[in-house]
Design a protein around this nucleic acid. Structure first.
Length: 293
DNA sequence: AAGTCGTGGGA
DNA sequence: TTCCCAAGACT
């Protein structure tokens, strides 16, 4: 835990820092719709900010509201997703647009429980949308905030692999009472983690709360917890799926036999195609051809 | 609850 | 060059 007075000091300092140093991101512009916020949150799941900027702008131009996307074939969403990665997110975003139209009259729901029920919206994303789009008071615990709080309050370099309840409790200890301030704290603490308190090379010299940071005070000890899971990619099914989908994104129907015919592992190629179909990211048309859904 | 799911860039 | 990891969700 952390002393309430200390938490309040940290919040004030971080809010002040945010006012001065916040990045100008398109989805933070005043006037961004809840739909715009929702789309940004989908795109930002595991994808860096820099790569989301352009796709977000064109996405919102093409589909300025949920109904516009809902009216499209899912494959259009997958194609427009481009190389953002994890294309199932595009599918889920499309499904979410449909759910918003069918169950919420075309407007992004404001209740956290309703947001949570949308496909592709988990604990973090629901809280983020409710906070950023509707100014509500929620614990918004993403990878940035987890790292910031772990360093400040626990004195460790990295949080545990999985979010614990103790961590959520810790985060609640920082959450300001007023919704307006809580919502600002949510973005601000995320921004601090993204820009200053980064995973690789934290810029403690620029940090507004170095003096309150247990990790810094302890001499920035190196992480000694359980091994952080690596993400080997070369040679995996994911790589193969990505290659298949890249071809399908090119458009048209592709003869399955020609699709990645040169792939070194035929079994893996077959597995990738079947799993993409199972996921709804590809469909077989007549005569053994594959296309986007 | 540990694995799976893309892709690219900075250190 | 290689490695690490980035506003997670889902099973």
């Amino acid at each position: 835990m952390i002393a309430p007075a200390t938490a309040a000091t940290v919040v004030s300092a971080v809010l002040g820092w945010y006012d001065q140093h916040r990045r100008d991101l398109p989805w933070r512009r005043p006037g961004t719709s809840p739909w715009g916020v929702l789309v940004s949150e989908f795109m930002l799941q595991q994808t860096p900010v820099a790569r989301v900027r352009e796709p977000w702008l064109s996405w919102l131009t093409r589909w300025p509201e949920p109904a516009a996307l809902a009216a499209e074939a899912p494959g259009e969403a997958v194609r427009a997703w481009g190389r953002l990665g994890y294309p199932r997110r595009a599918l889920r975003l499309h499904q979410t647009a449909i759910a918003i139209v069918q169950q919420h009259g075309g407007s992004v729901p404001t209740e956290r429980s309703d947001l949570l029920a949308l496909p592709g919206v988990g604990s973090y994303t629901a809280a983020a949308i409710a906070s950023f789009a509707f100014g509500q008071r929620h614990v918004v615990l993403d990878t940035n905030v987890r790292r910031v709080l772990t360093r400040i309050a626990l004195g460790e370099e990295f949080p545990a692999p999985a979010t614990t309840r103790a961590e959520a409790t810790l985060a609640e200890g920082f959450l300001p009472r007023s919704p307006e301030r809580a919502a600002r704290w949510a973005v601000a603490s995320m921004e601090l983690g993204a820009v200053v308190c980064s995973a690789r090379s934290p810029r403690c010299g620029d940090c507004p709360v170095v003096r309150q940071c247990a990790w810094h005070r302890a001499g920035r000890p190196t992480y000694d917890g359980p091994p952080r899971r690596g993400q080997t990619y070369e040679g995996t099914d994911r790589q193969c799926r990505g290659a298949v989908l890249a071809v399908l994104r090119g458009g048209g129907e592709v003869p399955e036999a020609d699709l990645l015919a040169e792939w070194p592992e035929p079994a893996q190629r077959t597995r990738a195609i079947e799993s993409l179909i199972a996921d709804g990211l590809a469909v077989r048309t007549g005569r053994g051809r594959l296309t986007l859904p």
